[in-house]
Each structure stands twice: as structure tokens, then as C-alpha cells.
Computed example of a mutant assay.
Amino acid sequence: MRTGRTGSAAVLAGALALGAFAAPSAEAADTGVKVSNLVVNGGKPIVVGTTAEVTPKFSFHIATPSGTKVSDVTPFPFLYHDTTPAKAIDSGGIYTGFTECGDGPRAADCTGELTVDPRYRLDSTNDATAWKVAVWIRVWTADDKLKGEQFLTGFGTAQVKRAAKVTVDASPEPVAKGGKLTVTGRITRADWARHTYTGFAGKAAKLQFRKAGTSTYSTVKTVSADSAGALRTTVTAAADGYWRWTFGETSTTGGATAAGDYVDVK
């Protein structure tokens, strides 16, 4: 396979290819290539922590004009915000990890994945926002010369969110039936400026209990975290079972649920 080109059922290493080509200085003329039904991460938010690389999947349909085959085209879906598509290719974007297209001569379904490395692509909490979706199209001649290129936009947005965690500890263990049980925990979320997890101040979390021998948790009360993200409350111990904290996602942050902490009630 020629570097930087798709082929019949070919796999394109998009992130490497992006680094191999200089971005155009302005949006180029219409190539006639059409991209439709572009879906990123199944339409769900992309939740990213502080160190682990995340690879959300995407899919789309591509169609080419007369005289251009699918194998002549390299499509690079990518995400950008607070910039333009052309500038995002050089910096500030979330890029294609790979793209694979089918065997159709002038139309094909394609799949692939983006690569989000928070250490290099996310450096501010302002990155927890709606990123615009675009596709960089490059069209090649039979002898591997660039014939044309274009940025396709208008595919909507993909939400990128900060990953969150929550811990739980219930004590004393064991506890006398009818005695007081103190349940603590801490909510933290990814800080992309520091690349560590920091306290999620003021976030409300549900305290839930699952009686031993059952499979369903029930909410006992809701508690708001303090300025450091700490949770603390007192409940009455009535039966053996598991205690946990849980909370849903916000516009900028993913949700989290702690593993249940078992308490033996004597």
C-alpha cells in the first residue's frame, strides 16, 4: 500500500500520515468527494483521563465523483475546537489513528478510530467541551501526486469529557445492628492542565445500599462533596450489605460509581 493512500480494504495509519504531510494554508477547492453518515464514538461522549490513551471509533460512507476511485482518496476524520480545520491539522486537534474503507470503486463504507492521548492533546479544562467534527480529504493521481484536497465540515460535534473517580469506605466494620455507620469517600476528576486527578468540589453523589443476597442497589441519601471533593455522612446499620457512592455525568465530566464496600452487621 502506498503511504498516505487508501486502497481496496486498506488500512490507513492516519496519525502517522498527518505528520508526514504539511497542512494546506487555506481550504482547497471542491474535490467532489462526499462523506455522509459520519458517527463518532457511537454518538456518545468521549471520556478521557490523565494518562491512558483513548481510541474512540468512527464510521462513515464515502462517495467519489466520476474519474476518482475510493482508492485514490485518503479521508482523515478529526476533531477540533477554538480554531479552524486547517490550523487544527498542525496543532490542537484530535486525529485519526487509522481508517479502513471497503472495496467499492466509487463508494464504500469506512471505519476507523481516533487517538486521544491526554498528555499531548488535552492541556486545559477548557478542552472538556463540544469538539467540531471534520474530514480532511486528499485525492491522489495514479503516480502518487496530490491532485486535490479539501476540508469537509458540518458533521456536528463530539463531546469530550473529563474522566471522574469516586471512592468509598464504610466504618466501623463490623458494626452492631442499629449502630451508626460512617460512610466516606472522595470524588476526583481529570485535571488536564496538571495531568492528575483533583477534587470535584460541590458535586452531589448518591449513597446507595445493596442488602447481602440481593442484586439491586437503592439510594439512601444524596450528599454534596466539600471543597476538596470529600464525601461524608452517617447512617443507621440495619443489615449486612454493600455501600457505594455514585453520580451521573455532567456537561464536562463523566459519571462514576465506586465498588461496593461490604459491612457485616452483628
Rank of each mutant, 00 (worst) to 15 (best):
140 W>C: 03
239 A>G: 00
126 N>E: 15
116 V>G: 00
24 P>D: 06
45 P>D: 08
103 D>V: 13
64 T>Y: 00
48 V>I: 10
16 L>A: 14
197 Y>T: 07
156 G>E: 09
94 I>V: 12
131 W>K: 10
30 D>S: 12
198 T>M: 05
53 E>C: 10
19 G>I: 01
50 T>L: 07
157 T>R: 03
172 P>N: 06
227 S>R: 12
35 V>H: 08
123 D>H: 14
224 S>Q: 11
42 G>R: 05
147 K>Q: 11
250 T>R: 09
156 G>M: 04
178 G>T: 03
61 H>V: 15
170 A>C: 06
185 G>C: 04
224 S>V: 07
154 G>T: 06
29 A>P: 10
207 L>N: 00
243 W>N: 09
266 K>C: 10
144 D>R: 11
80 Y>F: 14
31 T>S: 09
184 T>C: 06
191 D>I: 07
175 V>R: 05
70 V>H: 09
150 Q>S: 02
243 W>I: 02
161 K>N: 09
6 T>N: 13
142 A>K: 15
8 S>T: 15
228 A>S: 14
200 F>P: 05
208 Q>H: 05
32 G>C: 01
261 D>A: 04
8 S>V: 15
124 S>I: 07
244 R>H: 08
151 F>C: 08
207 L>T: 01
4 G>Y: 03
139 V>Y: 05
66 S>D: 11
260 G>W: 02
211 K>N: 06
135 V>K: 08
76 F>E: 12
144 D>Y: 11
212 A>T: 10
91 S>D: 12
150 Q>R: 03
158 A>E: 10
214 T>I: 02
209 F>A: 07
91 S>I: 09
166 V>R: 05
120 Y>P: 03
29 A>E: 13
128 A>N: 14
157 T>F: 03
127 D>E: 12
105 P>A: 08
107 A>I: 07
178 G>E: 08
50 T>S: 11
124 S>K: 09
163 A>Y: 05
161 K>H: 09
180 K>C: 07
52 A>H: 11
179 G>R: 05
157 T>C: 01
19 G>P: 01
214 T>Y: 08
129 T>H: 12
143 D>R: 11
33 V>Q: 08
100 E>H: 12
101 C>S: 07
90 D>H: 10
181 L>W: 04
30 D>E: 09
203 K>Y: 04
212 A>P: 02
104 G>S: 01
15 A>L: 14
83 T>R: 10
65 P>I: 04
25 S>P: 07
171 S>K: 13
198 T>P: 02
191 D>K: 07
85 P>I: 04
11 V>K: 13
251 S>K: 12
50 T>P: 04
60 F>P: 06
239 A>W: 10
245 W>S: 00
176 A>P: 08
160 V>T: 08
126 N>P: 03
37 N>Q: 12
62 I>M: 13
211 K>S: 04
251 S>R: 08
126 N>C: 09
264 D>H: 10
3 T>N: 12
93 G>L: 02
61 H>S: 15
41 N>V: 05
93 G>R: 06
246 T>V: 15
70 V>M: 04
67 G>Q: 03
204 A>V: 15
142 A>G: 08
231 L>P: 00
111 T>E: 14
